[in-house]
Design a binder for these strands. Sequence first.
DNA 1: AATATTAATCGTATATTTGCGATATAAGAT
DNA 2: ATCTTATATCGCAAATATACGATTAATATT
Lengths: 111, 111
Amino acid sequence: MAIHKKESFTNKEQELAAFAKAISHPARIAILKVLAERNECICGEIVDILPLAQSTVSQHLKELKNAGLILGTVEGPRSCYCINWKAFEKFMAAFSFLFNKLKVQNEKACC
Amino acid sequence: MAIHKKESFTNKEQELAAFAKAISHPARIAILKVLAERNECICGEIVDILPLAQSTVSQHLKELKNAGLILGTVEGPRSCYCINWKAFEKFMAAFSFLFNKLKVQNEKACC
DNA sequence: AATATTAATCGTATATTTGCGATATAAGAT
DNA sequence: ATCTTATATCGCAAATATACGATTAATATT
């Protein structure tokens, strides 16, 4: 790749892309689903549910956390995660804004 | 990676992830924006607008097309693209369904 | 027919992602 | 103090993604 071109795009474009990237893996979607189903914050449970090694799950959790989609706190020897609904709503709004706004304009396909 | 684990997840999880992956790059979001702004289907215009080489833009267009988010037809020596609103709506619905449905259940964060 | 224009594809270099085992860390239990 | 238990991190291998220039293909133009 040699040169990063992502910087040439707008902040909004980058933010939306980063959000999409965070949920662009089925494992991370599965994790979000588990976290959303139980209000109780889980962690090791996710490892049991997903067909992935503990280290891999931990890595996916880290990515989701870095993207701001989940919150995590240490509770003794275990970690408690949950969905950050606010971040989620923010991104959903940005998403809808970008594409619904535009949709009203034209609607019909041309090809 | 050696072993693909994506197959271990549900179809819905994979579809949603694939959709997210398609829009997980700022260049592709920028392309979608351009296509949505003009009902007229563009192609070479995108190359002029984006800070990327023609081959790179073509590659991004291909990915968007493969993901079903845009439609493309050849018009003589040029290609005409436009947004596939139906696919977009379908995925937006799946998206909202997955996360809004769950959101109603609990709403409050626990961490 | 020869040339220009437009876009797709090929080949290639580099970067990033994904996944795992091994190890480290940190707190609770014995 | 030692031993579990739970989780994060490190180091590595393999796969994918990103980007570009060069080439090809297909159609208009001259």
